[in-house]
Amino acid sequence: MLSIKNLVKIYDDGTEALKDVSFDVDDGEFLIIIGLSGSGKSTLLRCINRLIEPTEGQIIWNGEDVTEADSNHLREVRRQIGMIFQHFNLVKRSSVLKNVLAGRLGYTNPMLSLINRFSQADIEMAYEALRRAGIEDQAHKRADELSGGQQQRVGIARALMQNPKMILADEPVASLDPVLAHTILGYLEKINKEDNITVLCSLHYLDLVQRYATRVIGLRNGKVVYRGSGEDIRKMTDEEFKQIYGEEAERVRVGPDSSEDVDGEKING
């Protein structure tokens, strides 16, 4: 269980990215954070595993305050929290397998990883993760030879290698087309349900939010402006929608398939 309390982040240049953000995430939730670009979604996600140091506030992860953790402890916390990124953040010139194995680094003896050694068990685990992601046959290709959707699966496989209790997904489908977006989010949902891994995901497309979220938090200018369950967001009115995104937002129909009757909204900010 994760609970964020009064989180504030002010960057060195004075930008207030997060202003007193508080919310709780129960285990097994698929929590989606929505908001315009620049509303603080990425900062919020990165504060949770302290890729960005929060300025104030607390992040309580399973009863411990992550913001207080020393570097050894922080690494332990980080390896329980997988992360996937909008631009996949794979090492492009390394093989797919090596990228996936990198997810194991938190468990590997630093001395062994110096000489590029992973245990046989880790390697088997990596193949298993790739098999689950459906890209086992790509294991020995260079990461940048894969398509965007495949690269994101590698990113998820890397996160799964950590045996995470939670996955932070920073706009995982923003670089992908809508069809692929559904596949990737469907895959995340499967992981969420089958492995009972909590997912914290920031998203742009409202139709995707309505389809996958169990809970939704709306951010605007670093403040939480909306909280709701999955049910709430499916019944969301245009007024509420505009409250989160601002007046210029408009609904755009996107879907995995035009025959499918899904109302999609894209936010033009």
Partner: peptide, 15 residues
């Protein structure tokens, strides 16, 4: 990007 991703796995600085 990759630096961020590797850090997020709980890797040490050297790793």
């Amino acid at each position: 990007g990759p630096i961020e991703a590797i850090q997020a796995t709980g890797a040490t600085h050297l790793q």
